[in-house]
Nucleic acid binder design. Structure first.
Ligand code: ATP
Length: 729
DNA sequence: AATTTGGAGATTTTT
DNA sequence: TCTCCAAATT
């Protein structure tokens, strides 16, 4: 009981209800994660064994923190709890059980880049033009199908357009190739366990028995595969607790489906539903502001949220000239906050919609000498030089991984050129042997001796390290390997800033490998590679006293004393691609809501009149979301200059007049750009090769004007207006 | 076979 | 603006 003392009445009741299905639906900052944490501590206190508990969180860091808190509450034992993201938990299960579905223990996990490369190579094999059909579109169609539990065969029945038909074909082949490569993509980490459990009842029962208490945080962002997976696991004991807030569902692009919350009530009729209504995080102003915004969404689960916290300061809106000034004004505000309040750099977060916005903000912070940290962004382990080394490590333990093999067979260059590689691939197809097998037997092939020798040397290298992996420590193996391929020396010799940077990155990778070895009881290469693949954006965030910069998505579940949300402009938040679809605009609104509710004491919103995109100026209209915040919680700070006269303040008048004014401003601009052709957003057009389509976006002016056209046959294409020769219909 | 080059596309968000 | 890829050059 003692572990529940730090919960309020409603929270305690939810935490104490440990048997049967439980659903906690509550607004931001109401202590959902806290309840889940204390509930698990309570489970332990009632004598339930740690290994009987499974906790699924949205990031690995959240899982780690949860375990840490539980340890504080109940002492030892918490480290035996299985806690992590869906992907890492089920990857771990697959490591042990995958042989039942035809994989070997050392299977590789492909990230999106690997998967895209595989899709491209399949399209090439099928002679599908990657010019005409965008491999990324194919990839996302495949991934969406997988997340929605639609198999290639089922997808075939739903396919009508040419791109859908070809996607099916690629999809089937893609799954086959993954299997042949002894590899899984991110989606497979959820689908393969389902396959496993459906195929082998004994294995299923083992895990059902083992995880008698399931706990899932951030349930609003689970997809259908995840939903099915937890249903299967919970089927026997039905002790599962899900926690979420439909207003914070922001990952539908990844297949997340709010329907899961609604279905849960149907699928578990005996579910006990708990609501938490007191917000402990934010001031009254912030909460009221956020509430005013989210009210504009239709179809929400009704929730009440109130707080005992002070009213606090109004939400400040900073209107700035451009993105550069946006950064400067934020810096100025931070300076002020650091002086007048008892704030530290680590209490401050700057949030944005797209990663590319971080650059101008970084510039401003750097100039001022403020320490900052970018969370997420271009992740370390996705860098080219890192992925090259990882590819070596991957094929050392999984020679079937042909994507990785092709990546490094001639890196660094060792005289195995494109023609040679094509030849080897052809032989391997004809003889139905694996690529690596073919390489080992290359001596009988008709290729220049020099090339054949290079290939054999390469094979010996891989096999040598394959032998070595159990004889020397992983950190030694890493270092020796990097030495032997001579990559560090090459980078040093190149001597550019960029190559020196890469040199450092590789050193850092080696340190990471060493650290991994030192901290794990049984370090294995497969496990290291798995961890590295499944790192989530916020996992690297630490407690250093630095300002945090990250996307709104990455901010989910976190909280900061002071939050800046930048780029409140139509086209950026909400993002231009979402504007035609109301559901998508609502998701943007939820994203803004998530951002606003991260703030504890003070919330700043910034909006620029123009910003640079691809090195070109683009003019901005204030975001509709600004108008949705109730007037009395807002304070607009605008620099007085000639621009302010032209664009008056948006929040001074509530009626739709103001937003219309900005809208007409935008239309004027667009008309102006494309005067001669009369092409603007929404125009129906005809293109000689692509056929009929509708203009979605117009960017730039005069000779540089670019348009995005959504063609009926082939989907979206970007064209240069000058050359596209579009005819209006 | 390796290196250089020019042009197109990219910025949605992430496991 | 930067990064990737195909084609051209060495
Ligand atoms: N009963 C309580 N007493 C004191 N503080 C509390 C209580 N409940 C929650 N809090 C605090 O409120 C803040 C928000 O809690 P928590 O992160 O668990 O909320 P949440 O509902 O998961 O939020 P979100 O959905 O926005 O991520 C935390 O700082 C937490 O410590």
């Amino acid at each position: 009981m003692s572990v529940l003392l730090k919960l309020n009445q409603a929270q305690q009741e939810a935490a104490k209800c440990i048997e049967g299905p439980v659903m906690i639906i509550a607004g931001a900052g109401s202590g959902k994660t806290r309840v889940l944490t204390h509930r698990i501590a309570y489970l332990l206190e009632t004598g339930i064994k740690p290994y009987q508990i499974l906790a699924l969180t949205f990031t690995n860091k959240a899982a780690k923190e949860m375990k840490g808190r539980i340890t504080q509450l109940v002492g030892s034992g918490a480290d035996k709890i299985w806690a992590g993201t869906f992907h890492s938990i089920f990857a771990r299960i697959l490591r042990n059980e995958c042989e039942q579905i035809g994989f070997t223990k050392n299977f590789t996990i492909y990230d999106s880049e690997d998967s895209l490369n595989l899709i491209k190579s399949i399209m090439k094999d099928y002679n599908i033009s990657t010019q005409q059909y965008n491999p990324k579109a194919v990839q996302s169609k495949i991934s969406n199908s997988k997340n929605a539990l639609v198999s290639p065969v089922e997808l075939q029945k739903l396919s009508h357009t040419p791109i859908d038909v070809l996607t099916c074909k690629v999809f089937s082949k893609y799954q086959l190739r993954l299997f042949q490569n002894n590899s899984m993509d991110f989606d497979d980490l959820l689908l393969k366990p389902i396959e496993l459990f459906q195929k082998n009842k004994i294995t299923l029962e083992k895990y059902q028995y083992r995880f008698q208490f399931l706990n899932i945080d951030e349930f609003q962002d689970t997809n259908r595969a995840q939903y099915l997976l937890i249903n299967i696991l919970a089927e026997r004991y039905k002790n599962l607790c899900i926690v979420g807030d439909d207003a914070q569902s922001i990952y539908s692009f990844r297949g997340a489906d709010i329907k899961n919350i609604l279905d849960f009530q149907k699928d578990y009729e005996e579910v006990k539903i708990f609501r938490l209504e007191q917000n402990y995080r934010s001031t009254k102003s912030i909460l009221a502001g956020a509430d005013g915004v989210i009210k504009n969404n239709s179809n929400q689960i009704k929730k009440t949220l109130w707080t005992d916290n002070e009213i606090g300061e109004q939400i400040s809106i900073l209107e700035t000239e451009d993105d550069k000034e946006e950064g400067l004004q934020i810096v100025a505000k931070i300076q002020k906050e650091l002086l007048s309040q008892t704030m530290n750099l680590k209490d401050i977060a700057i949030l944005y919609r797209t990663n590319s916005q971080s650059r101008s903000l970084e510039d401003a912070l750097r100039r001022q000498g403020f320490a900052y940290e970018i969370v997420g962004g271009i992740e370390f382990y996705r860098r080219k030089e890192i992925k090259d080394i990882l590819a070596y490590l991957r094929i050392i333990i999984n020679p079937a991984d042909e994507e990785s093999l092709l990546r490094i067979i001639n890196f660094p260059t060792r005289g195995i050129g494109d023609t040679a590689i094509q030849k080897v691939i052809a032989i391997s197809r004809n003889t139905k042997k694996g690529l690596f097998e073919t390489l080992k037997q290359i001596i009988s092939a008709e290729l220049p001796e020099r090339v054949k020798n290079s290939i054999l040397t390469f094979c010996k290298l891989i096999e040598k390290y394959n032998q070595l992996q159990n004889k020397i420590s992983l950190s030694e193996l890493g270092r020796t390997l990097v030495d032997e391929i001579g990559i560090l020396k090459l980078l040093k010799e190149e001597g550019t800033v960029e190559s020196l940077n890469r040199w450092e990155n590789i050193q850092e990778l080696l340190s990471a490998l060493t650290e991994y070895c030192d901290t794990k009881e049984e370090p294995t290469l497969a496990n290291f590679l798995e961890e590295v693949s499944l790192i989530s954006a916020t996992d690297n965030k630490n407690e250093d006293n630095k300002i945090t910069l990250m996307t709104l998505h990455a901010a989910k579940g976190l909280e900061f004393q002071i939050v800046f949300i930048t780029g409140l402009e139509e086209g950026l938040l909400p993002l231009s691609q979402t504007l035609q679809n109301n559901d998508e605009v609502e998701e943007e609104r939820r994203l803004f809501y998530v951002g606003m509710t991260r703030a504890m004491k003070k919330l700043y919103l910034t909006q620029a009149r123009f910003r640079y995109r691809f090195g070109e100026i683009s003019y901005c209209v204030p975001s509709r979301f600004i108008d949705e915040i109730p007037q009395n919680y807002v304070n607009v700070e605008s620099k007085k200059n000639y621009y302010s006269k032209k664009y008056s303040k948006p929040t001074q008048n509530t009626d739709s007049q103001s937003s219309e004014k900005y809208f007409s401003q935008e239309v004027e601009e667009i008309d102006d750009l494309t005067l001669s052709t009369k092409i603007k957003k929404g125009s129906l057009v005809f293109h000689d090769t692509f056929g009929n389509g509708r203009v979605v976006i117009v960017i730039g002016s005069g000779e540089n004007a670019k348009v995005t056209v959504d063609f009926e046959e082939i989907g979206k294409k970007n064209l240069l207006l000058m050359y596209a020769n579009l005819k209006t219909r």
